[in-house]
């Protein structure tokens, strides 16, 4: 079986606003294999989030092909995409985006509402995911009662609870202090190593990139070939 999770061919995205055309991504070709942990780096505005959004079908490409888990996303309807997303993709945001009125456990249970699992099973799965991120003692807490690092770990638990094929993280440590960031990165790395989760993580932080198995750069909408960094990019400390 093909172990390619994401494959793009000349994937492009342009935004047209008024008279201006912004090319956010041009002719990106990438293959992401099962079990990889890729850090996506590049200057601000280079198109990192754009690539992630296209991969999660949160936006439609302007050109090229995108295949995620063997599905041609262009051909799916809105509700099919919703179901597909629930089953195959976990998304982690920079700003956590937990539902404030739901407890940690309820937040994690939420995506399971779309599965056929019964209430008891859902609770069990959610509790297991929270335990995995080390927050089994915080299940009844509301987001405002948690620290940023804890909120992000709940968000990761919510992203993995449906056992998706790929985890997409957009600057998951961007809002965290060094200690919490390191906890979150260790967790992602564990998910990759122990559970074989495929992860694509956008980051600005070279230290964070160390946790990944591979680093890819984007510059001005162009995905640079493997092993190549933008010219003015400060060399990775190592």
């Amino acid at each position: 079986m093909d172990d390619v999770v994401i494959r793009t061919r000349n994937l492009s995205k342009e935004y047209v606003r008024d008279e201006f055309r912004v090319v956010a991504l041009k002719n990106a070709n990438i293959e992401i294999h099962r079990g990889e942990f890729i850090a996506l780096m590049g200057p601000s505005g280079s198109g990192k989030s754009t690539l992630l959004h296209l991969a999660a079908a949160m936006d439609r490409p302007s050109g090229g092909d995108l295949e995620v888990m063997g599905s041609q996303l262009n051909s799916l309807s809105d509700s099919e995409i919703a179901r597909w997303r629930n089953r195959h993709v976990g998304f982690v945001f920079q700003s956590f985006n937990l539902i404030p009125v739901l407890t940690a456990l309820e937040n994690v249970e939420l995506p399971l509402k779309l599965t056929h699992l019964k209430k008891g099973e859902r609770m069990q799965h959610a509790a297991t995911a929270l335990k995995l991120v080390g927050l089994d003692d915080r299940m009844g807490h509301f987001p405002r009662q948690l620290s940023g690092g804890q909120e992000q770990r709940v968000a990761i638990a919510r992203a993995i609870v449906t056992d998706p094929d790929i985890l997409l993280c957009d600057e998951p440590t961007g809002n965290l202090d060094a200690r919490s960031a390191s906890e979150v990165l260790t967790l992602l790395s564990r998910l990759n190593k122990e559970f074989g989760k495929t992860i694509v993580m956008v980051t600005h932080d070279p230290h964070a990139a160390h946790f990944a198995t591979k680093v890819r750069y984007i510059d001005k909408g162009e995905l640079l070939p493997e092993g190549q960094a933008p010219e003015d990019w400060k060399a990775l400390p190592n």
């Binding site: 509700s79 179901r83 997303r85 985006n97 939420l110 995506p111 779309l114």
Partner: peptide
């Protein structure tokens, strides 16, 4: 608004 976007990403449909 943000919650609505989040719910959609979790897989909830427009309906």
């Amino acid at each position: 608004s943000k919650e609505i976007g989040t719910l959609r990403i979790l897989g909830f449909s427009r309906r």
